[in-house]
Design a protein around this nucleic acid. Structure first.
Lengths: 204, 204, 204, 204
DNA sequence: CATGAATGAGAGTTCATTCAT
DNA sequence: AATGAATGAACTCTCATTCAT
C-alpha cells in the first residue's frame, strides 16, 4: 500500500526501458523482423514480461513513434512561442531540425522506412495518419513563423503556407543527405546556405 | 530455334505481366502481407509458375523497384541532354517530377513506405542502397542542369550541388503534399511558385 | 491457540468465499477461459492469495464440483430417510430435483458442459468418475425408494433399478428442457404429468 | 484440367480422413488439449496441411459435430416417414437410439462432455445452439410418432410433446448407463423394459 | 511447362504458477 | 499473510518454398 507510489514509479521506469530497447531493436531489424523474443532478450526480461507493459507488439511500436513525435512537436512549439523576430526563429528552426535529427537519427530512419504493412491495416492507417498529421503540424508551426515574417515586412506577401512548405522541403532534403552520408561534421555551412538561398533565391 | 525465340519473347512478356500485377498487389497490401498466393491469383497463374520467372519474393520486389527507378532516371537523363537553356530544363524538371508522381503514385507510395525488413537484411541493404543511389543520381542530374545555369550566368555561383539539393527538396515536399492530399487539380500555381521562390527568394 | 482457532475459522471462511466467487466465474466463462486473474479480481484479492487456499486451478474447480454434488446427495438422503410412504417420497424427489435445478442452475450447467480436458487427464478421469458415481448414487437412492414402493405393493415387482433409471431419465429430460428454455414459470403441471405417466403409463 | 474431378474427389477424401482422425483425437483428449500438432500427427501429415482442409481448429471441431448430428437426424426422419404403425416406430426408435449410441460412442461422449469455452464464445453459442436444436428436432420427430399413436388410439390423449419428452428421457438415461458401464451385452431386456414401462406405467 | 498440395520453421500471445518483497 | 511482477512453455495460425505429378 505504502509502496504503491514507488511501484508505480518503478513501473513507469520499466516501461521506459522497454520503449528504449525496443526502439533500438526496431531500428536495427525493422518491425516485422524484430520478434518479441528479440526485444525481450535485448532488455533482459522474459517475453511475457513485455506484455505486462504493452498489450501488443503494434502498440509498443506505435508508442515509440508517438513518443518521438511528441518531442519534436514540443520543440517546434517552443520556438514559435519565443519572443523574438522572425529571422531568429527561422534560424533556430533550421538548427533545431538538425539537432533533432542528430538526437533521433534512429527514429527518423525508422520513420522514413516505416512499413506499410503492420499487422492490421487499421494500425497502419493510424500510423500513416500520425505521420501526415505530424508533417502538417510541423508545417503549421513554420507557417506561423512565416506569417510573423510577412507582418514584420521581412518576407514577401505570398501564401505563407507555400513558403513554409518550401523551407521545410529544403531542410528535409539536407537532413536526409546528412543522414545517409552519416555526416557528423559541422553543418554550419549548410545551415547558412539554406537561409541564404531561401531568403535571396539563387538567381544571379 | 524459331520456337526458342518465340518462347523467349513469351517468357519476357509473362515476366512483365508478373511484374505489373505484383506491383499492384504490393502497392495494395505491402510487402509482408502480399503472399505469393495473392500475386499468383492476381495474375491468374499458379503459385509455382511465379517461381519460373523470379527466384524469390524478394527478388520480385526488388525488380519492381528497379524497373520503376530506371524509368525515372531515363526521364531525367533526357531532360539533361536536351538542347535548351537552363531555365527551360528546370521548368521541365519540375513538371516531369509531378508527372512522374502522377503516373507512379503507387510506386512512390510503395517506395516511401518501403519495409526495411526484407527477409534477409542483405537485400534490405541493397534496396536501401538503391534508394539512396537513386536520390543521388537524381541530384546529380539536377546538379548538371544547375551547373549549366551558372555557366549561362542565370544562377549564382554557389555550390551547385547545394542548389540542386534545395530545389529537389522543395519539389519533393510539394509532391508529398499533393500525394497525401490526393489532389488531382491543376498544379500549375504550385509549379510557378516553386520556380519563383527558388529563383528570387522570399525576402521582401 | 485462541488465535489459531480464529485464524482457522477465518481461513475456512475465506476458502468459502473463493469457492463461491470462482464458481460464478467458471459458470460465466468456462474453465479454460476463466483465468486465475479473473477469479482473484472477482474476489478482490491477489492472484497469489488464491494459491494460499487452493494448490491449483484444477483443484479449485474440482472442489466446486464436489461441494455442489455433496449438497445434492444430502438432499436425496434426507428424502430417503423420511418416515413417509413411497408415493410422497417420489413426489418430493421430483419436486426437489426441480428445486435443486433452480438453485444450482449455474452448477448444473457447468457440470453438463464440463470440459473433459482439464490440465492433466488424470484429473479429468477423477471428475468424470465423480460425475458417474454421483449419477449412480442418485439412482441408488431412488432405487431404495422404488424398492420401498414395491414392498408397499404400490409398484410393480420389476427390477427396481430399471424403474429408478426410467424415472430419473424422465425427470432429467424435463429439467433440461426447463433449463434451456429458462422457464421460471410454475412447473406444477410438468410434475404431475411426470408422476402420472410414470405410474400409469401412456397407453390408451 | 482433366484431373480436376479426380483431384476434387481426392480432396474430399482427404477431408474425410482429417475429420475422422481429428474426431479420434478430440474424443481422446478433448478440444483444448488436442493440439493441431496432435491432429496432424495422428493423420500423418504436417500441421500446415490440416489448414488446407479446414480454416481453423474450431471449424474442424464444428464440422465433426455437425456431421455426427446429421447422421442421427437422417436416421430419425427415416423412421418417422416409414409406413408402419406407431408401436413399430417407437420400437425402432428405441432400437436405433441404441444403435446410434453404439456406433458413435465417441461422438456422444464428446458431445456430452463438450466444453463451453471454445476459443470465442460465439462459437460456443453456435455449438450450444446446435445441440439444443438437435435435441428439439429429435423431440419433434418423436412427437410426430406419438401424435400418430394418439390418432391410432394406441396412446392416451395427453400433450404429445410431454410424452415424447418422457420417452426420450428414459431412453437417454438407459443409453448413458450403457455408455458409462461400457456394456456391450445384449440390450434386448432394457429395450422391452423401456417399452413396457412407458406404455403401461409402473403402478402395481 | 505448369500445378498446387505439402511442408515446417516460426510468429505473436496467453496464463498457471512462483517467489522476492 | 499477502502481493503482483516475472516466468516460460504452449498454443494457433501463416506462408515462402519445394517437388511429385
Amino acid at each position: 500500500m505504502k509502496m504503491k507510489g514507488f511501484k508505480k514509479k518503478e513501473m513507469v521506469w520499466r516501461r521506459q526501458e522497454v520503449l528504449a530497447m525496443a526502439r533500438k531493436v526496431f531500428t536495427k531489424k525493422g518491425f516485422h523482423h524484430s520478434t518479441m523474443d528479440d526485444i525481450a532478450a535485448a532488455i533482459g526480461i522474459s517475453k511475457g514480461a513485455v506484455y505486462l507493459y504493452f498489450p501488443s507488439k503494434e502498440k509498443l511500436f506505435m508508442d515509440i513513434i508517438e513518443q518521438g513525435l511528441r518531442g519534436r512537436t514540443e520543440m517546434l512549439k517552443e520556438i514559435v512561442n519565443k519572443n523574438t523576430d522572425c529571422l531568429s526563429k527561422i534560424k533556430e528552426y533550421i538548427s533545431q531540425a538538425f539537432v533533432y535529427m542528430e538526437n533521433n537519427r534512429d527514429l527518423v530512419q525508422m520513420f522514413m522506412m516505416v512499413e506499410r504493412d503492420l499487422v492490421c491495416s487499421d494500425l497502419h492507417q493510424k500510423l500513416h495518419g500520425q505521420a501526415i498529421k505530424e508533417m502538417e503540424r510541423s508545417i503549421e508551426y513554420l507557417t506561423a513563423i512565416i506569417r510573423q515574417g510577412v507582418k514584420e515586412r521581412l518576407l514577401k506577401d505570398i501564401d505563407p503556407e507555400n513558403i513554409a512548405l518550401g523551407l521545410s522541403g529544403i531542410i528535409q532534403m539536407f537532413i536526409m543527405r546528412a543522414m545517409f552520408q552519416k555526416m557528423t561534421k559541422s553543418l554550419e555551412k549548410e545551415k547558412s546556405f539554406i537561409l541564404e538561398a531561401f531568403l535571396e533565391g539563387v538567381k544571379a
